[in-house]
């Protein structure tokens, strides 16, 4: 880890609700963060976190209104570390089927789809709770922020939609819920993103932050 006081770590503030737990996790490791909706600050950051809980369409509208779509794409283009969490993973995709079809950032190929709910089968939506993340091919986590974890570790999830990913090679972990096996974290070049909330997944979740910080 580089001297953390010199690292400009920006958390994108676009009106999402889980900002504060992400900030707490960063502070836990001694990072002072810039919570920002300023396009220039995002472009100039050393590392960026895109958090998020809530509705895809509303989130894209907010990013558009705040003129943040291009700055986020430019930042990802720069090759510096970028992390998406929960809705912050979903927004990276091409589109979501929430409220018809909404266009996403298009940085990862695939579509965001809704979990099936079914009272007969006791399929509950949203998924609110702990589930396991599985390494799709043994040893995949070596060069990932998941590197200190073992496969089938429990992480905390809160979501109604999941990523139907086309970039199969980008899948870091798979998770099964309501009979759907889906991509619960991904890594593509300098992008790392999780559907679960590492900042809400106890000590094992904090390790993911630590590993990500160590990769800077």
């Amino acid at each position: 880890m580089r001297n953390m006081t010199n690292i400009k770590l920006a958390i994108v503030d676009y009106g999402s609700s889980n900002l504060y737990s992400v900030i707490n996790a960063c502070k836990y490791f001694g990072f002072e963060v810039d919570i920002t909706d300023n396009p220039q600050m995002i472009r100039n950051a050393d590392a960026v976190i895109l958090p998020g809980v809530g509705a895809f369409q509303q989130a894209m509208k907010n990013l558009e209104r705040l003129d943040l779509i291009e700055p986020i794409k430019d930042f990802v283009e720069s090759g510096n570390p970028f992390m998406g969490i929960c809705l912050g993973l979903q927004l990276l995709f091409e589109s979501s089927e929430e409220f018809g079809a909404t266009k996403g950032l298009g940085l990862v190929n695939g579509t965001i789809r809704k979990f099936p709910n079914d009272l007969e089968k006791n399929f509950k939506v949203p998924q609110i709770g702990w589930n396991t993340i599985v390494d799709p091919k043994n040893g995949n986590w070596e060069n990932s922020p998941l590197n200190s974890l073992k496969s089938e570790e429990f992480m905390y999830f809160v979501h109604s939609y999941y990523a139907d990913i086309e970039d199969i090679g980008a899948i870091s972990s798979l998770t099964t819920y309501n009979g759907t096996n889906y991509c619960s974290s991904l890594q593509k070049d300098n992008i790392f993103a999780t559907q679960f909330h590492p900042e809400k997944s106890g000590e094992k979740g904090l390790e993911i932050y630590k590993n990500w910080f160590n990769s800077f």
Binding site: G54, A55, Q58, H159, S160
Partner: peptide, 8 residues
């Protein structure tokens, strides 16, 4: 729910 998401 519309403002913060149902799961909140």
């Amino acid at each position: 729910a519309n403002t913060f998401g149902s799961s909140t």
